[in-house]
């Protein structure tokens, strides 16, 4: 198989996995571009920011940063808080992103929620190059997002059909991936820890500040169950 065939194979294996993201990111990207336009920014802002930041919720927040007083330390602190969940993705992908060569930096750069969850959970066929598969998933998601932001930023004022509720496509995607993982695992303790810790800290801390407490609770809980879990595995 020559390189071109190998690339084509990886691309066509990756594309179907990204179709929910195509719908979701185009929509959210358009919403983001329109939002930026409504704040008075020219289309170049959402286009550049969607390409170089590539972290959805942070880009919406960055818009409010740009409108406020200049404070880079606050901007950095806010970014680290909002994006701290990426640390968990990185630790999870240490093995999968190994041996991906030059593509590795891009894979890590483009590791948004959606690219992470697809690259982590997809069953990549044996005859498909894993590194290129994951690169195409990341690259396609990146393109959808930037394309959406560009459309929204340039043509935002012309769009008038009722898209209310379309953002639910992302929730649906994560629910499906959660169920797929749930079925793959024999023990559900860890998945239940993730859900319970997140729900409890959402109730306690509210929508804007629950992620860090949830991450700390998850770390504490999975550490606490480490010994019994591993002993069970050794016995099995």
């Amino acid at each position: 198989m020559n390189k071109r065939e190998m690339l084509a194979k990886a691309f066509f294996a990756a594309f179907p996995h990204t179709t929910p993201i195509l719908a979701g990111f185009l929509f959210l990207g358009i919403a983001y571009g329109m939002y930026m336009q409504s704040l008075g920014f020219s289309a170049i802002y959402p286009i550049v920011m969607s390409i170089i930041i590539f972290a959805g919720s942070m880009e919406f927040l960055a818009a409010t940063l740009l409108l406020g007083a200049f404070n880079p330390f606050h901007a950095l602190f806010l970014t680290l808080m909002v994006n701290a969940r990426h640390l968990f993705y990185g630790i999870s992908m240490l093995e999968k992103y190994k041996n991906t060569g030059k593509k590795k930096s891009y894979l890590i750069f483009g590791m948004c929620d959606e690219s992470f969850s697809i690259n982590y959970s997809a069953n990549i066929p044996r005859n498909v190059d894993k590194g290129w598969f994951m690169t195409f998933v990341t690259l396609l998601n990146h393109c959808y997002w930037a394309l959406g932001a560009a459309i929204g930023g340039i043509f935002g004022s012309l769009i008038s059909f009722n898209t209310e509720g379309l953002e639910f496509v992302m929730t649906a995607l994560f629910v499906v991936i959660f169920i797929e993982q749930w079925r793959k695992e024999k023990k559900h303790l860890i998945a239940l820890i993730g859900l319970t810790a997140s729900v409890i800290s959402l109730i306690l801390f509210g929508g804007s500040g629950f992620i860090l407490p949830a991450m700390i609770a998850i770390l504490a809980a999975v550490t606490a169950v480490r010994k019994p879990q591993e002993q069970k595995e050794a016995a099995a």
Binding site: D113, M170, F174, Q181, I193, L195, I211, I218, V222
Partner: peptide
Amino acid sequence: LPLAVLGLLVVYCLK
């Protein structure tokens, strides 16, 4: 962590 963080992501969407 992946198993736990997927639960976190679902809840994140509903925040």
